[in-house]
Amino acid sequence: MESMVVTENLTKVYGKGETAVTALKGINLSIGQGEFVAVMGPSGCGKSTLLYLIGGLDRPTEGKVYLDGQELSTLTDNQVTEIRRRKMGFVFQFYNLIPVLSALENAALPMILDGVPVARAHERARLWLERVGLSDRLDHRPAELSGGQQQRVAIARALAHEPLIILADEPTGNLDSRAGDEIATLLRQISSEWGRTILMVTHDPRIAAYADRIVFLKDGKIVDQTHLNGNAQEDTRTVREKMEVL
């Protein structure tokens, strides 16, 4: 399997001198194309930091991140911005939709930012909103949607411009368990049916169990990796056991 994301000795230190906190220590990770990877670990283990570094939202103190063979740390802010715009899709815990735009406009946002003609951007956004089951909510503003629906809009937004990888930061963290399951199922479907690469950070074993592989972090280091077999209940149990060890 070809690697979509490769990190080499990835290290991140926040602050300086005595107050310095090392969030990540020499992470070497490879994510294959079309793979659905979940990152788990106790709070403060550096899982979000890893996601931000891979997503080009933050710069590493040491080490390198390769996305589709391209190294991110050597690029300027504008170049990284362009890569985010074209090659990545983000899903956040708090959805982060623009309150003054409709569901359709929100989903089309990355393409609009990239200069895609409005009609085409809307057409693609509509397609993905339909796929995530929101065909009857296109013109609603975020405030008129439930949490689960808002997260679906966010997922459509992350997918509509056909990115190479989707980065999801606690995508179910703000949802009740039923809505959370729906979102996780959707992500699973995105990976297996439409072949997208997904990197998801979560602290919920039940949600992590939807992934192909789970990376366990502790104190900024990878302590374990588990490939799952696709049986939800069994997988959940495996993950729970591993988390308890941590």
Partner: peptide, 15 residues
């Protein structure tokens, strides 16, 4: 938060 999100989605500083 909105602005940060736009930046994350790929809006440049000048946008």
């Amino acid at each position: 938060r909105d602005i940060g999100m736009l930046r994350a989605l790929g809006a440049s500083r000048s946008t």
